[in-house]
Amino acid sequence: MTKNNGRMRSASFMAFSAAFALICIGGCQREERPFRVAVPYIGPQDGPRLSTLQPGPEMPVKHVRNDYEDNAWVLSEGKRLFQLYNCSGCHFNGGGGMGPPLMDQKWIYGSAPEQIFSTIMEGRPNGMPSFRGKIPDQQVWQIAAYVRSMSGLVPIDAATNRNDDIHPGVQPENSRKNVVPLQSSIPPAAEMPL
């Protein structure tokens, strides 16, 4: 009886250790810091379209995958850059002010990584400036990843839960549950001028 008990105990201990090790291994790459890394590539057919009209049959929409979104460090870098490049000057800490809020489920120009990338790079009518050539590509991808994290669109285990420095700061990105992004209609004031 006691022998059996001991065996069971050691077996459960082994199982627990194995599970613990697995969990630890799973977390290994969470905070890997890719200082020099190739940025996601947008092919000629992958970029966002500014019009829904297409000649001929409609092409399937193919979204770019932003590998940065799995990485907690990159997300925290994106957060730092979001403040540094004064995105927060208009969007505040995601709640929106002069610019639209980023932590809700409404997206005027799309929620896909390449759409956000293009919004930052090209700018949008009525206020969103174009940062092309002003911010290096890899940093724009980092900011795009962070922007998506604010409405819970990145894996929950990668969403940053602290800044990479001593000040805790504001954290909309881990107070948001994953919400289904909705394509809002473009407000008349923000339509592309013809």
Binding site: F35, P136, Q138
Partner: peptide
């Protein structure tokens, strides 16, 4: 990033 990996200066093209 090659000279001082992790520093705040980005790679510039």
């Amino acid at each position: 990033q090659h000279i001082k990996p992790g520093c705040r200066m980005p790679q510039n093209n």
